[in-house]
């Protein structure tokens, strides 16, 4: 699992459900977010649907595509959460600071 995938899974798990919201909360570019979403959808980790037309027109905007995690996606998201937690621990321990670029791939 790439770091980007982990971030996107984590965004979906925390109820960020639209492409632009995921970009905003993860800081990942559109060129990364959409391919990952597409792959996750093909792997049935997420499913997506159009929001209904009425609520979109009530809000005066276009219909958005909404993503949500499937059961297998939730398992993946949990793995992602652990992975991110490890990364955070690594960063707070100053591992990158002391070990230098060699640890960059961790």
């Amino acid at each position: 699992m790439t770091h980007a995938t982990a971030l996107i899974l984590q965004a979906l798990a925390t109820d960020h459900r639209h492409g632009f919201q995921i970009m905003e909360v993860t800081g990942l570019p559109s060129g990364t977010v959409y391919p990952v979403l597409r792959r996750l959808e093909r792997e049935t980790a997420v499913e997506s649907e159009w929001e209904d037309a009425e609520s979109a027109s009530a809000a005066g905007r276009r219909q958005r595509r909404t993503y949500r995690l499937t059961t297998s996606g939730q398992l993946l998201a949990e793995r992602a959460r652990q992975r991110l937690a490890n990364t955070r621990k690594l960063l707070s321990d100053g591992a990158l600071g002391t070990a230098g670029p060699g640890m960059g791939g961790a």
């Binding site: 639209h18 632009f20 570019p29 959409y34 905007r61 958005r64």
Partner: peptide
Amino acid sequence: HADIEDVHASGASFGELLALMIGLAGA
């Protein structure tokens, strides 16, 4: 299209919109 409009409505700068468009081409 919907996402671009949402990003635009959120007050993104021209540069941010440009980055979004280039990213979409990549996707």
